[in-house]
């Protein structure tokens, strides 16, 4: 009996938001598992450091500095990927987040803050999905994984805007799955809970993190690497019949 294939070896994978945090961990993990990875983010220096690390471990990485809300830059990124690797099997859409806007209460949020969140957490997701799906539909295969957030289902005081946008990403994911299913292009989302990236650790502090972890059923907050298993599952052929789902990766219902 052949077991379902969980491997991503040889699968050409684009990772947005690859310079830091979850995107960085997923890019390194996929490379370690044998996937050629295309590293996408705005800051060249961070991407190059990641690429060096991957190459030193015997992996393949291509750096394409890209602002994911610029359609022409995305199209160029897709072209470079095709020139280098010939096809695109997987898109891990991680770019997003709220940065320093996170701490602004909704009542004080400026329109420009709102616009930035909208562009970074929703528009970018659509543009990336669309740019990559053009290739995947042509190929008649592909797996897209959008990184959403627990805040898309759980109401969090400071995340009125980001939470709303993440809920919208969940729904977009489901609708795109229906739209592109006939071309054998799968679209799913992972919804991580609070994840202890360097930035989050600095922002929240150890005391809050310890307290917060007690409210999670599995009694720990996620490390970026905790999302690697779910991402590999949705990217690989082990999930060949799964599309349009939102998979929480949060240590239990919250």
């Amino acid at each position: 009996m052949n077991l379902p294939n969980f491997s991503v070896e040889g699968k050409v994978t684009i990772v947005t938001g690859a310079s830091r945090g979850i995107g960085n961990a997923l890019a390194k993990g996929f490379a370690e598992a044998g996937a050629p990875v295309v590293l996408v983010a705005r800051t060249v220096s961070e991407l190059e450091a990641t690429a060096e690390e991957i190459t030193a471990n015997g992996g393949k990485a291509l750096v394409v500095p890209t602002d994911v809300i610029q359609r022409d830059q995305l199209n160029k990124m897709v072209q470079k990927t095709i020139i280098e690797f010939g096809r695109i099997d997987v898109l891990l859409n991680v770019a997003g987040g709220a940065g320093d806007i996170y701490v602004i209460p909704p009542i004080q949020m400026l329109e420009e803050n709102y616009d930035e969140l909208h562009e970074r957490n929703y528009k970018s997701v659509f543009l990336c999905n669309q740019a990559v799906a053009k290739v995947m539909i042509e190929q008649q295969h592909g797996s897209i994984v959008n990184i959403s957030s627990l805040s898309g289902t759980k109401a969090v005081a400071l995340e009125a805007v980001v939470g709303g946008l993440k809920a919208a990403v969940n729904q977009m994911t489901k609708a795109l799955a229906v739209s592109w299913g006939p071309y054998n292009v799968r679209v799913n989302a992972i919804a991580p809970g609070i994840t202890l990236t360097e930035r989050v650790k600095k922002k929240l502090g150890p005391e809050f993190i310890e307290q917060f972890s007690e409210s999670i059923p599995l009694r720990k907050a996620a490390e970026p690497e905790d999302h690697l298993g779910p991402a590999m599952f949705l990217a690989s052929d082990a999930s060949a019949y799964i599309t349009g789902i939102v998979l929480p990766s949060d240590g239990g219902p919250q």
Partner: peptide, 27 residues
């Protein structure tokens, strides 16, 4: 089987309380 192996194995060590539809589309 793919989904069951994922949930049974350590690959899903941080995943709990989720519902995974396996139906070729959104539920």
């Amino acid at each position: 089987l793919g989904a069951a192996l994922f949930l049974a194995s350590e690959a899903s060590a941080f995943v709990s309380g989720v519902i995974i539809p396996v139906g070729g589309g959104p539920e």
